[in-house]
């Protein structure tokens, strides 16, 4: 079987993204930040429509919107009379609503906007140009994660203990939020806004049972992610299913297998 050029690009893009979503997803699971991931994903739609409006690189637009969301979250969390759960819900859905309204405005102005591509991903249309961008961004994120790994881990284990030992907890948290915003921006192309959080948490959750150290969990999450991308893209070719949801579906099947298969 000859692998078409676009399939190769899709595979490469998927593999690059799971390389960073694996370790990042582990931290999301440890720190229970799945809802924050959802909020970022929702803000990505707003970021995209703003990028179209101001004619800037959509990747940049999504990252900037994610940063604004993270900043608002931190500011709103200072007053303790609302839970972060409620605040996140407001930001998340506020951003989604704003994004949908903006997109409708764009469309009414006669711009062609493919909503489905944003919601469910558009992996098979990845260009070589996008791949170059993607590799640069993913390598940068991976570099920052490795550089800060010990501090990220210390904060995940126990924030106050880390703070008392001199870890710059607030800085680490902020950088981690920014990294998530970046990963959401790049993962949007792969699985779409609705399913980004799944790409973060499902491979990490599947990895949990087989590992005894934080690092092995990160590596194992990458491996689960790789198989999800391979399986999903293959299924998409074979049965003409949408690539993004197929990848997530494969990862979820792998999760169930990892949970139920032969309780050792």
């Amino acid at each position: 079987m000859i692998i078409d050029d676009f399939i190769l690009r899709a595979l490469l893009a998927g593999l690059l993204v799971v390389l960073v979503s694996g370790p990042l997803g582990c931290v999301v699971v440890w720190r229970r930040m799945a809802y924050f991931g959802d909020a970022l994903a929702h803000s990505a739609l707003l970021g995209t429509s703003l990028s179209i409006m101001f004619d800037i690189n959509p990747l940049l637009g999504v990252i900037l919107t994610g940063m604004v969301l993270s900043y608002l979250l931190i500011r709103l969390q200072i007053r303790k009379d609302l839970s972060s759960d409620a605040i996140l819900g407001i930001l998340s859905h506020g951003a989604l609503a704003a994004g949908l309204v903006m997109l409708a405005i764009m469309q009414s102005q006669g711009r062609r906007v493919d909503l489905m591509a944003y919601l469910f991903g558009d992996l098979l249309s990845v260009s070589w140009n996008y791949l170059i961008w993607l590799s640069a961004v993913c390598l940068l994120v991976l570099g920052i994660i490795s550089w800060l790994w010990q501090s990220i881990l210390a904060v995940a284990v126990h924030e106050e203990l880390a703070r008392s030992e001199g870890v710059a907890v607030d800085r680490v948290r902020l950088i981690f939020m920014l990294l998530m915003a970046v990963v959401v921006a790049v993962a949007m192309k792969i699985v779409g806004i609705i399913l980004i959080t799944a790409l973060l948490i499902v491979p990490a959750a599947s990895a949990r049972r087989f590992v005894k150290s934080p690092e092995s969990m990160a590596i194992m999450a990458v491996i689960f992610g790789l198989f999800s991308v391979l399986g999903g893209v293959f299924a998409s070719m074979q049965w003409d299913t949408p690539a993004g949801p197929s990848i997530v579906l494969v990862s979820v099947i792998l999760f169930f297998v990892s949970r139920f298969k032969g309780s050792v």
Partner: peptide
């Protein structure tokens, strides 16, 4: 101190 079970350490 609560250590999340999801964190293998």
């Amino acid at each position: 101190m609560h250590i999340d079970m999801a964190l293998p350490i």
